[in-house]
Write a protein that binds this DNA or RNA. Structure first.
Length: 266
DNA sequence: TCATTAACCGTCG
DNA sequence: CGACGGTTAATGA
């Protein structure tokens, strides 16, 4: 049992609001979403606790309603490869929920988090009653496939320093906010996190980050990374000589939502 | 616990 | 050979 304790109480306002913003349910009315929520369970997961593990039987679809979750893969050498960090309104491992096969990766709460579990037997019903969710699911899966394709391609084609550069740029895509000096990655990221995501050791991540820091390209304070010279990072990652469509790492656009900082292409 | 530095060492082009 | 990057160890915050 890897799960945090369950809260029996019905979903709170904030939880419902997060579910409403889950892309899988795009196009459903508030009332419809609330009816679905009534059949979900709310789970509070303390920091560091695992929500589910790679290989576990899928229990349904997990949707983050608060906190932050890291998705990771166990590699042959025992190290963890961080697939990415996920924030509220994101559904975790949709593929496993849909095909009922075991989870493809481990989900661990980075900070205290809250997740909603849409029970597995509710999913076919959703598809039947709200065909739009099928379109939404396909869109989500496509993004997933593209992200994974890029990730594996990068692992094969880029060297360690370049991968650190790619990781920084992906984080900017996911969490970047423009500031006076440049762009800030708006969530705490340890050197270890960067290393796990780039598929390098901490020391290599530190080597690269230190070099960037000395060149005045980035600065870090309390695990918040700010990039003052995005062009230099793009150069480090050799963005110019690769054609991967990294825009798939950006959160899906949504009317009325605050726009994250963009990384200009080319 | 996290960050950093440095020496060391194996692999590969 | 030499660059790269992983390993190990020591140190400080």
């Amino acid at each position: 049992m890897t799960l945090g304790e369950r809260s029996g109480s019905p979903p709170r306002e904030q939880t419902l609001a997060a579910l409403e913003r889950c892309h899988l349910l795009d196009g459903l009315s508030q009332e419809q979403v609330h009816k679905i929520a009534a059949r979900c369970s709310v789970h509070h997961v303390p920091a560091q606790r695992t929500v589910f593990e790679e290989g576990d039987e899928s229990r349904g679809l997990w949707v983050i309603t608060a906190g932050r979750v890291r998705l990771q893969h166990l590699m042959a050498d025992g190290r963890q490869h961080a697939v990415g960090f996920r924030t509220p309104t994101t559904a975790l491992d949709l593929a496993a929920a849909l095909d009922g096969r075991p989870y493809m990766e481990t989900a661990a709460a980075v900070e205290e988090s809250e997740l909603l579990l849409v029970p597995r037997d509710l999913l076919p019903e959703l598809a039947r009653r709200y065909p739009v969710t099928i379109r939404n699911a396909i869109a989500s899966l496509c993004i997933d496939v593209r992200q994974r394709d890029i990730t594996t391609a990068i692992a094969a084609v880029k060297d360690a320093r370049e991968r650190v550069g790619c990781t920084l740029l992906q984080l900017v895509r996911e969490f970047g906010r423009t500031t006076g000096r440049g762009v800030r990655i708006d969530c705490r990221v340890t050197r270890q996190d960067i290393a796990a995501r780039a598929g390098v050791t901490v020391e290599t991540a530190i080597r690269t980050m230190s070099e960037l820091q000395q060149r005045g390209v980035v600065c870090t304070e309390a695990q918040i990374v700010e990039i003052t010279d995005v062009a230099a990072v793009r150069e480090l990652a050799r963005c110019g000589s690769c054609q991967f469509e990294c825009s798939v790492f950006a959160p899906a656009a949504r009317a009325g939502a605050p726009q994250a900082a963009r990384v200009s292409r080319r």
